[in-house]
Design a protein around this nucleic acid. Structure first.
Length: 254
DNA sequence: ATGGCTTGAGTGTCAAGA
């Protein structure tokens, strides 16, 4: 079973790249973030023509998440129960016996921002909900754009980023609370190249200069992590014309 | 150096991303 996540930064702009990527990699599930598309305008026909089902929760301009699957899903649900939030950042569905949770964690803007406080509250709500979700679903994967670089090795210049949003102690502690639920960072189950990142700023030729962060993750519950045979970042789409600023992450399970 | 790109909205130019 192959699971993947990709922040596409507009599904409308990136749809040709997403369809090509599905054809090339044939994941069982691909989680998308920043679709920036309201549900009535979701490109369902094109995705179905590519042989995929879609479960999605979007809005105009900002945010928006989707799960594309080869098989039909069950128990599709949107949002964090009990956490009233107009921002469409979570969708979940069960496929092939695995509970898939697709998340677009708030960016936070800066540690001084109200958006940063919202980010930490949002992460608390996500963690509390996932504790319950994991009790119901032993095989669970949390995939998405976490907007957190968990460790210094996930940052091109740890000194420059020290204490800044995406790298602050409080955000990293929130990530540790998530893994503390029993979710393992699939990427770190394996030996990985140095300077492995999933996001590079569009500006200053950051990708070419390897100035990135690893902020997109695939976390797997113990039952699922035990079946994980690989996890990698596909930097190929980042080289395309009109790329997303994020690269897809892929994990395979026996 | 608060710049540097990209997208969406909407048609001039700003918010938001990370």
């Amino acid at each position: 079973m192959k699971l993947a996540t990709w922040n596409v930064n507009s599904l409308k702009v990136r749809l040709p790249q997403v369809l090509a990527w599905l054809a090339a990699h044939t994941p069982d599930a691909l989680c998308l973030q920043e679709t920036k598309t309201e549900d009535s305008k979701f490109p369902l026909a094109e995705i179905e023509a590519a042989g995929y089902h879609a479960s999605f929760s979007g809005q105009k301009t900002y945010n928006g998440v989707a799960i594309l699957t080869r098989q039909p899903v069950t128990a599709a649900a949107h949002g964090i129960p009990g956490f009233d939030d107009p921002q469409k950042r979570v969708t979940a569905a069960t496929v092939n016996g695995v509970r898939i949770v697709c998340a677009y964690v708030p960016n936070g803007e800066s540690v001084e921002s109200d958006k940063y406080r919202y980010k930490l509250e949002w992460l608390d709500a996500l963690t509390a909900w996932l504790r319950a979700e994991m009790a119901q679903h032993p095989s669970l994967a949390l995939l998405g754009d976490f907007n957190i670089a968990p460790e210094d090795r996930d940052v091109h210049d740890p000194q420059a980023w020290a204490g800044k949003v995406l790298c602050s102690d409080a955000e990293r502690a929130a990530f540790v609370r998530l893994t503390g639920l029993g979710l393992q960072d699939s990427f770190r189950l394996f030996e990985q190249p140095e300077k492995s990142f999933t996001w590079w700023d569009y500006r200053m030729q950051a990708f070419r200069r390897k100035m990135g962060l690893r902020i997109d993750h695939i976390l797997a519950s113990a039952a699922l992590a035990g079946r994980c045979t690989s996890c990698s970042i596909d930097t190929e789409p980042r080289r395309h014309e009109r790329p997303s600023d994020h690269a897809p992450v892929i994990a395979e399970f026996a």
